[in-house]
């Protein structure tokens, strides 16, 4: 079976699961449906010959599920009451997004065909990577050697995000302490 048919199947499952995640009322089911989407991405990375990415995506999915379930499941979930206004907003959004989809069809026709990528830069990495860096895994060679400054910048972004998360959570616990001490 050609790989494209597998990918179409996985992508259809992912689209259905993401729509379900947005429309289901129960928050735990919604988070689980997001898990289906993420594991679908991991599976399609395996089909697309990217084993490193499949492993990283799998781990990401597990961590994201743990964070979301830990944070949101016990909370009182807002019951979405259906009003006329809501329906109108949904219909207008769907029409606009449908127009966006139709207008962007020519862009996809001009892209290189699936399965025949432009490999102008990557050819160099593929043929010279082993000699110049000595790494057998060419993805690791690009991350840690050819584009090391790029990776340094992205690690800085990650560090900033973690510092931000920690400081937000710390402010909260300080206020809690103050409340308890006042009582």
């Amino acid at each position: 079976m050609p790989i494209e048919i597998w990918l179409i199947f996985i992508l259809c499952v992912m689209i259905i699961a993401s729509i379900a995640a947005l429309e289901i009322k129960d928050i735990l089911s919604s988070i689980i449906a997001i898990g289906v989407v993420g594991l679908g991405v991991s599976l399609s990375f395996l089909f697309l010959q990217a084993p490193d990415l499949a492993v990283v995506q799998f781990l990401f999915e597990i961590f994201a599920l743990i964070i979301l379930v830990r944070a949101f499941v016990k909370k009182e979930f807002h019951q979405h009451e259906e009003t006329k206004n809501n329906l109108l907003i949904s219909i207008v959004t769907i029409v606009v997004l449908g127009l966006l989809f139709l207008l962007s069809l020519p862009v996809f026709q001009n892209l290189p065909v699936f399965g025949q990528p432009l490999m102008t830069v990557s050819e160099y990495y593929l043929f010279h990577g082993a000699l110049q860096t000595g790494a057998a895994n060419l993805v690791a060679a690009i991350i840690l050697d050819y584009r090391a400054y790029d990776t340094l910048g992205e690690v800085t972004v990650l560090f900033t995000a973690i510092i931000g998360t920690l400081s937000i959570l710390k402010i909260r616990s300080k206020e809690k302490n103050r409340e308890t001490s006042n009582e």
Binding site: D52, V56, I67, L68, P117, L126, V139, T165
Partner: peptide, 24 residues
Amino acid sequence: VDPLPQALVLTSIVIELGTTAMLV
């Protein structure tokens, strides 16, 4: 296959985890 997008996406996935944690 082309290794360059794989290398870029690998770091992007990890950053996505950090931003998700911050949003939460």
